[in-house]
């Protein structure tokens, strides 16, 4: 029986290795010298070099740090905005003592399905009129239309697991509903909120369409949008492109390592419950 379990481990490991090959290949290609990229492909680099990284960071006039900074602003902005709006709403839905709350829940479920390309044009026109084009805020708002419905759903399942007794006690002791929510519920829901924060951050980090349509000023471009330009500029300098891809994936991997357990249950609960 024990040996059978190890057999499963080996099969599982092989599957993971094959499946994640593209990620491996991205990293390995970024560490190969040009001659190896265009020579015979080898699974392991013969000579490891950081030439490609040096090229993208100092050797070119691409303002990589600028684009990283833009990505960070947009992602943090989306994250904070989403959490601030989603937490009270998800709490109200979870407690279910309001009229029409099921309708609101249905509405949230439906909004999750709107294709983002359907919003791109009307948001572009709206933002042009109120001067939000070419601004971080415009992209942040657009990103929030994607993250807010989903985060409300994930948070709702999280609030459902918190006992009502504590907040009821606080209210009897003279706390207002908001007071009980801010002082009792939010601290208890910390892990759920962190998951949702990570989720909205990741979503904004990878977002492309809204930045593409709304930001014509390239000093505001996030890294995803800059990638597009790099593809044109570096042509088939795959080493540099892979180095850039690896660098842009790094923040995601870091966040993922810290939150993976919660994110998995979050995705599953938010989508099916």
């Amino acid at each position: 029986m024990r040996s059978k379990k190890w057999l499963f481990s080996i099969v599982g490991f092989l599957i993971v290795a094959v499946f994640l090959f593209p990620i491996y290949w991205m990293v390995i290609s970024s560490l190969k010298p040009m001659s190896e990229i265009f020579g015979e492909s080898t699974l392991f680099p013969k000579n490891v070099t950081f030439e490609a990284y040096r090229n993208i960071f100092i050797g070119s006039d691409l303002a990589i740090f600028r684009h990283f900074f833009n990505s960070l602003i947009i992602s943090f902005g989306t994250m904070i905005g989403t959490i601030c709006l989603a937490a009270p709403a998800a709490y109200a839905i979870a407690r279910k003592n309001l009229k029409g709350i099921t309708l609101f829940l249905l509405f949230i479920l439906i909004t999750q399905m709107f294709p983002s390309n359907m919003l791109a044009l009307p948001l572009y026109t709206m933002f042009a009129k109120i001067g939000l084009l070419n601004s971080y805020l415009g992209v942040i708002i657009a990103n929030m239309t994607l993250s807010l419905p989903f985060v409300i759903l994930i948070m709702r399942t999280h609030f459902l697991t918190l006992p009502k007794a504590l907040e009821e006690a606080a209210i009897i002791d003279g706390c207002s509903r908001w007071g009980a929510f801010l002082r009792i519920i939010l601290p208890l829901a910390r892990s759920g909120i962190l998951t949702c924060a990570a989720f909205s951050f990741l979503l904004a980090w990878g977002e492309f369409l809204y930045s593409l349509t709304m930001l014509s000023d390239n000093s505001k471009w996030p890294i995803t949008l800059a990638m597009r330009q790099f593809v044109g500029q570096f042509g088939t300098n795959w080493g540099e492109l892979m180095a850039l891809s690896a660098v842009s994936t790094l923040p995601i991997i870091i966040i993922f390592i810290f939150t993976q357990r919660h994110i998995i249950s979050g995705i599953a609960d938010g989508s099916t419950k």
Binding site: I15, V16, L202, G206, T224, M227, R228, M242, S245, Q260
Partner: peptide, 23 residues
């Protein structure tokens, strides 16, 4: 093992597209 697979889903699609274009 099952959580590390999710990296594929969380990496920005623009990056995955670039990596697949190279492959």
């Amino acid at each position: 093992m099952r959580s590390i697979l999710l990296i594929a889903w969380m990496t920005p699609i623009i990056i995955i597209g670039t990596v697949f274009s190279w492959m």
